[in-house]
Nucleic acid binder design. Structure first.
Ligand SMILES: [Mn+2]
Ligand SMILES: [Mn+2]
Ligand SMILES: [Zn+2]
Ligand SMILES: [Zn+2]
Lengths: 125, 125
DNA sequence: AACCCTATCGCAACATTGTTGCAAACATAA
DNA sequence: TTATGTTTGCAACAATGTTGCGATAGGGTT
């Protein structure tokens, strides 16, 4: 895993943003022309492999990435993600891990729990 | 809401299939050339409006549709959907409604709870 | 500091999914 | 049968994501 200009810049963005970001969100935050569109996709995937970020599939099918808070031990992300239909952001709600019980013999690998609605900030206005 | 050849055929497919279907899944099941690709998208959306189907965003971002079981009263679909990474199907698990509690002031409109892993059939082999 | 190896990148091309505008076709009610 | 508004086909487009391959550059070694 090499430290490249693109990787450093993208990781910095992911770590200093409190909402989940798509490839195009990241591109918009990067200095114009810092790297190619494809590189952003590849770096984001790499960050997931390196356990520095996790993926969220939004309600509209667009994939977003957010930094990992405490994945040193287990790289699980069973918390809720909230999509605000007003400000169009996806937020990790780390505190909320939904409980559910599948019938026998289902092997669970990953969970994508997305709740869509209006966030407190948008509601306040 | 008119009864058209396309609508009838697509509704029949949705109602007689026990897994959720994407536009391309539906197209594969329709007689060749019964209707245009765009029509399938439009009919599926119409079926959702008519409360005859519900949408599921799969882990890969592709939108799938499944028939509604008992939405006469409230058109809620808070149950779990399971994506099998082996047989590549998405199944409604109507019996399982996860419980979760968001912080105050979040207004919830829709829920997309997707669990990905290996289904019992695929595990049995 | 120069060299090497290979991970990473840029580019161009492609695939898939989904959307839109508009004229033609069709379902249904009058 | 005719009128009306819904639905459809088509073509064009948009957005997101992927792939192959030659070029670039990170970082370890000498
Ligand atoms: Mn998260
Ligand atoms: Mn369902
Ligand atoms: Zn908001
Ligand atoms: Zn399976």
């Amino acid at each position: 895993m090499r430290n490249t200009v693109a990787r450093d810049a993208i990781l910095e963005i992911i770590n200093t943003t409190d909402v989940a970001l798509s490839q195009s969100d990241v591109q918009a935050k990067l200095p114009e022309g810092l790297c190619n569109r494809v590189t952003i996709y590849r770096v984001l995937d790499r960050l997931v492999d390196e356990h520095l970020a996790h993926k969220i599939t939004n309600i509209d099918g667009v994939i977003k990435y957010a930094n990992c808070q405490s994945c040193a031990t287990n790289h699980k992300h069973n918390h809720v993600h909230f999509n605000c239909e007003c400000c169009n952001t996806v937020t990790c709600i780390e505190a909320v891990e939904p409980s559910f019980k599948l019938p026998a013999n289902y092997e669970v690998n990953t969970v994508n729990f997305l709740v869509s609605g209006i966030c407190p900030e948008c509601k306040g206005n």
